[in-house]
Nucleic acid binder design. Structure first.
Length: 530
DNA sequence: TTGCAGTGTCATACC
DNA sequence: AGGGTATGACACTGC
């Protein structure tokens, strides 16, 4: 038992996470994403007109409020002087005039219109021919014709390119979602394939851009991402072993949910999408991820080192194994952005999954009996149950690790499972002991209280007995003195004489002053004898 | 909505 | 040194 434990790094609570200031992500995530995407939207203040359509400062509407929030968040990222803001507005007006109001958006600009504006701006910055290639690719996949009239081709392209971010954008907490946006969600599943047709993805939407977007949006709900990353870790781990992506997907799938699988109790509508290439994307609610989805998860944004984090394999060139190792072994993976955003390194750690949180996801799945560790074992196809892994001797465990040709990631995962299992049992035993100790102490307290009451009763009985004896002695004393007579036959004054009993049994009537002097002598003798 | 109990996990110290 | 154990602390969940 230790009482001198040193303080350790405490995990962020969800309430602490709420400290993240309310900004655009909640109401207008895409704007935030764009605001944190320097390559697409230069940080120069005057260029920020691309981010906010004119008229957003008009009459207060729901959407206007969202856009204002976006603006505020943008200001946080790129503080603008007051003159810059005026300049911004002037440039917006000039822009509208110069473009023949092609991109003009009135103060009541709709969300669709805003997307159109964004897409047109993107068109100005990107190669149109490249966009056309993508349009061909996306349109060939059977887009929803119902929504086609809403969007320009560029808008469609932009949306598809922003699949992951659109998902964030189109979360249910965005109050101005329209039916077209809902239809957009339905189309997003076709994106992973379509994105593969991009001949130069980096030129269109650089991975860092996506990363910046994703990070900026999701930093607002990092707790959820911990869950997501655990799932991604397991999925990646399974895929790492060459498992069939579909099978892996089904492993994580919740058949009973019409929204796809749900490993997360708090994200019951979350779903995974696995593309044919075997890449795994995470989707929550209506999200889907391109084959670069994981890259987006772990991508980087050079201009925003704050959001810089681990790059995922693929275009980034890093190995998946290395990334998984980072997922598994980063000691500060449980830090939250508010805690770790001081450095890019810390932010990288922010996105590390918390292994135990898979449990929460698993518990809400169809197989409610499966714990997180069991899910891990199942995902890695380890031929041992969690109980076996935990309870087997260390020699057997090591031989099992050696004989099954497991990767470092799997070995690490299994060791974690064993460690957690052991510690879980230890914690249970510890709590049992603690409860027993408490019960024993309570029992001791009860016994002592009973004993105290008994002693109190005994004490009172003895007191009453002593009182009775004193009373009898006094009565006897008075009776004796009432019968005593001195030499002259007069009654003896009890105030002047006392009855003295010697050790031999003799009884004397002696004057009190003699008794006092004798007692003094005795008292003086006793200390000397001692 | 709040408080509480139960549980899993982590960090740490100790064996 | 590595593994196991004990325990305080924390986060999370369900009631």
């Amino acid at each position: 038992m230790r009482s001198d434990k040193r303080p350790f790094q405490r995990r962020e609570t969800t309430k602490q996470l709420e400290k993240i200031p309310p900004g655009c992500a909640r109401f207008f995530p895409l704007a935030t994403l764009l605001a944190n995407s320097p390559p697409l939207f230069p940080a120069r203040s005057s260029d920020r007109r691309l981010l906010l359509p004119p008229g957003t400062q008009g009459a207060p509407r729901t959407q206007d409020v969202d856009l204002k929030a976006c603006q505020e968040a943008l200001d946080d990222c790129c503080p603008v002087q007051g003159d810059d803001r005026r300049e911004l507005q002037e440039e917006e007006e000039e822009e509208n005039i110069n473009q023949g109001n092609r991109n003009h958006v009135d103060p009541l600009l709709s969300f669709e219109g805003y997307l159109q504006l964004l897409s047109s701006q993107v068109e100005n910055m990107l190669e149109v021919s490249l966009l056309e290639d993508i349009q061909v690719a996306t349109s060939s996949r059977g887009r929803d014709p119902l929504s086609s009239h809403h969007d320009t081709n560029a808008t469609q392209t932009l949306r598809h390119c922003f699949s992951r971010h659109d998902a964030t954008l189109l979360r249910t907490d965005y109050p101005t979602q329209s039916d077209s946006e809902t239809r957009l969600l339905q189309r997003q599943e076709s994106f992973p394939q379509s994105s593969s047709n991009i001949t130069n993805p980096g030129a269109l939407l650089h991975g860092s851009d996506l990363t910046g977007l994703f990070s900026a949006a999701d930093i607002r709900s990092p707790a959820a991402h911990d869950d997501n990353f655990d799932e991604i870790k397991l999925m990646s781990l399974a895929l790492e072993e060459g498992f069939d992506p579909i099978e892996v997907s089904q492993l994580f799938q919740e058949p009973g949910s019409d929204s796809g699988l749900s490993l997360n109790s708090s994200h019951s509508t979350a779903s995974y999408s696995v593309c044919s290439e075997g890449a795994v994307g995470y989707s929550s609610d209506v999200k889907s991820v391109s084959p670069h989805g994981l890259e987006a998860v772990g991508g980087h944004c050079q201009e925003h080192a704050k959001y810089d984090h681990v790059a995922y394999p693929g275009d980034s060139g890093c190995s998946r194994e290395a990334t998984l190792q980072q997922f598994l072994h980063n000691p500060t993976y449980n830090q939250m952005p508010s805690q770790a955003e001081s450095t890019s390194e810390h932010h990288q750690q922010t996105w590390m999954a918390k292994p135990g949180e898979v449990k929460d996801n698993c518990h809400n799945s169809t197989d409610t009996n499966l714990s997180s560790n069991e899910w891990c074992v199942k995902a890695t196809r380890t031929p041992f149950s969690v109980d076996e892994i935990v309870s087997m001797p260390v020699e057997s465990f090591n031989s099992m690790l050696a004989n099954n040709h497991l990767t470092d990631t799997q070995v690490s995962l299994l060791r974690d499972i064993r460690r957690r299992g052991k510690n879980k049992v230890a914690a249970q035993n510890c709590r049992k002991r603690k409860l027993n100790a408490i019960l024993n102490l309570e029992e001791d307290v009860c016994n002592l209280q009973t004993q105290k009451e008994s002693l109190k009763k005994e004490h009172s009985q003895h007191s009453r007995s002593i009182s009775r004896m004193k009373q009898k002695l006094n009565n006897l004393y008075r009776d004796i003195f009432s019968r005593l007579r001195d030499d002259r036959g007069r009654p003896v004054n009890p105030c002047q004489y006392v009855i003295h009993c010697s050790s031999e049994g003799s009884v004397f009537i002696i004057p009190k002053h003699l008794v006092k002097s004798e007692q003094k002598r005795d008292n003086e003798k006793e200390p000397k004898q001692q």
